[in-house]
């Protein structure tokens, strides 16, 4: 009977071995971050300078100019006076309730995170669409990125890079980039094969097929991905504030620990206002680039 005890009690690894393993891995990683941390931090310096510059610019500029620029961009992208007026109202309220500076900080990090997601994500999506083996290799990585709790990958990032903007933006990117990648891949794969065959028959190179046919036709899907990415980046604002990213997340964090209901709510609503602005503007822009889908009269 004693021999079959493993059937009822799970045959666990020896506790001492487990501790040794953890110590060895932690030690190795600590060693790695001690040796290469500075180098890797140096690698991200340009990003840090850009983040700081962009944030300072938004904070230093008078609010009236920033607001005018925001509304100008909104109108240019959406051509909608209603949306522009709504955003004007929301931002005036944000300023009135004293959240302007935090909102600018959040706006700055979200903008940079979105731009980085597009710059990195679209090429990766293209590579996935072109090769089934690349796709098979990247898909599980994306699955992990989306489901792994953010706190878990914050640990090594903070160990390596410390606390601040750069680890914050890396955390946001890891969580927010998968939709752009996935939907770029999907959008390109959904392009009508007949149309692609026609482009090939006229002697288009692979590059020309991509630029002239696949990307323009995939654009609505890619924009849906960008939209998702922005929303997910905003959802990370509070978590990123735990590793020292300033912005609307920090007051929310403070509200949780001190039970300040109104303060939490106001800052939360400011995040919602930013989300709605990004969402409506990017969607309106995507629709405007798809003029051919409108006015279909025949058949």
């Amino acid at each position: 009977m004693a021999d079959s005890s493993w059937l009822t009690t799970f045959p666990e690894m020896d506790r001492a071995d487990l501790v040794a393993m953890r110590k060895a891995l932690d030690g190795a990683y600590r060693e790695f971050s001690r040796n290469y941390g500075d180098m890797i931090e140096g690698f991200f310096d340009p990003l840090l300078y850009f983040l700081v510059w962009f944030e300072k610019m938004l904070l230093a500029a008078p609010w009236s100019i920033v607001l005018a620029a925001l509304l100008g961009l909104t109108y240019a992208a959406s051509r909608s006076t209603k949306l522009t007026a709504g955003i004007a109202g929301a931002f005036l309220l944000i300023g009135y309730f004293g959240m302007w500076d935090d909102t600018m900080r959040t706006l700055s990090i979200i903008t940079v995170a979105t731009l980085l997601s597009i710059v990195l994500g679209v090429p990766i999506g293209i590579a996935m669409a072109r090769s089934d083996s690349v796709r098979a290799a990247i898909t599980p990585v994306l699955d992990i990125m989306q489901t792994m709790p953010a706190f878990v990958y914050l640990i090594p990032v903070v160990m390596l890079l410390g606390i601040g903007k750069v680890p914050g933006i890396i955390a946001v990117l890891v969580y927010a980039i998968p939709p752009v990648i996935r939907l770029t891949d999907l959008g390109i794969r959904l392009v009508d094969r007949d149309v692609l065959e026609a482009a090939t028959a006229f002697g288009a190179t692979r590059r020309q097929c991509l630029i002239e046919v696949q990307l323009p036709l995939a654009l609505p899907t890619i924009m849906a991905g960008v939209n998702q990415t922005i929303m997910m980046a905003l959802a990370m604002v509070v978590i990123a504030s735990m590793i020292g990213v300033k912005g609307l997340g920090q007051p929310v964090l403070k509200s949780i620990t001190n039970q300040y209901f109104t303060m939490g709510l106001l800052n939360g609503l400011a995040i919602v206002a930013i989300a709605i602005m990004f969402d409506r503007v990017s969607q309106a822009y995507a629709r405007r680039t798809q003029r051919h889908l409108k006015d279909v009269e025949h058949d």
Partner: peptide
């Protein structure tokens, strides 16, 4: 690619026009 560009071209059963390009841009493709 050169051969396809200059010597031979094709008309398709289901038209296979580029939906995002105007008629003129399609013809000029």
């Amino acid at each position: 690619e050169e051969f396809r560009r200059h010597r031979i071209s094709m008309v398709f059963q289901r038209f296979a026009l580029f939906p995002h390009r105007t008629v003129l841009q399609n013809v000029a493709f």
